[in-house]
Design a protein around this nucleic acid. Structure first.
Lengths: 133, 133
DNA sequence: ACAAATGATACCATAGTGGTATCATTCAAT
DNA sequence: ATTGAATGATACCACTATGGTATCATTTGT
């Protein structure tokens, strides 16, 4: 079990990296090289971040990516959601009709409780707080 | 993301089912039928529980499975571990040498904190507490 | 014109998961 | 003794998510 996938992990690391970068604009290739991560995959990840509004991209020679938002506003929970879908830890119970008759399945309630805990924690973490921490 | 896999989920449901069963001995087939779950898969799951010491199995006609332990002693965290491996949410960071230089990677610390929370909760839940709840 | 960068896809390999099938073995009932 | 019903132990299959590569088009500074 893994709370973060590589995708999310790489995104966070890239954002932290970019926050301390002057000049702001960096290419995916360079980030990949500096962080020791596969360049093409990093690029795909950055494109997702761009589409989501976290980055501004510039095409052409000497192009690249730069932060579009204050790192205080980029929450870990949103990055997880972006790359891994909504944070829900009890999907299987809904899709299958196992619990159909039982309104308050104790197992499901327990899982949802834990999910709420995790969610709360993830909401409190931002890229900025990670840099400070 | 899912905290429990089907395997674990089925195991928990089967254990709850068996706890309220008289006579104690039930066949995998019957459990599957009564819970609306695939029989052969249920059987495989029960065999894992048996090997782990949670169930006693009896072969032959009118054989089946029965609880080998007090439901108070069967913790959810142990079932998760049994079917899904140790509860650790930050594996990727260790295997890859991303964090190698940085001793106290803030992202990793955050994930480990959350992991500890989840672990604590899972340790507090038993089959017995699920039945009561 | 050219090189370097992103945009957008398509593609591939691998692993985990859910599930089925098969054969051997045991045991109760007849 | 024979038979049927059950587990023990595997082997196998299908599907999906994930990590990662490759390709072609487009943009842009030099």
């Amino acid at each position: 079990m893994n709370l973060l996938t590589r995708n999310t992990d790489y995104a966070v690391r890239a954002l932290i990296y970019m926050a301390g970068k002057v000049p702001a604009r960096v290419s995916a290739r360079d980030i990949g090289r500096d962080l020791g991560l596969p360049g093409p995959f990093m690029r795909k990840t950055l494109q997702v971040l761009q589409k989501a509004g976290y980055l501004i991209s510039t095409k052409g020679k000497s192009g690249g990516f730069e932060l579009a938002q204050d790192t205080k506003k980029i929450r870990l929970v949103d990055l997880v959601t972006l790359f891994q879908g909504p944070v829900s830890m009890g999907d299987c119970l809904f899709k299958k009709k196992i619990c159909s008759g039982i309104k308050s399945c104790p197992l499901r309630r327990e899982i949802l409780d834990i999910e709420a805990l995790v969610l709360e924690r993830l909401q409190g973490v931002t890229v900025a707080s990670l840099i400070k921490g």
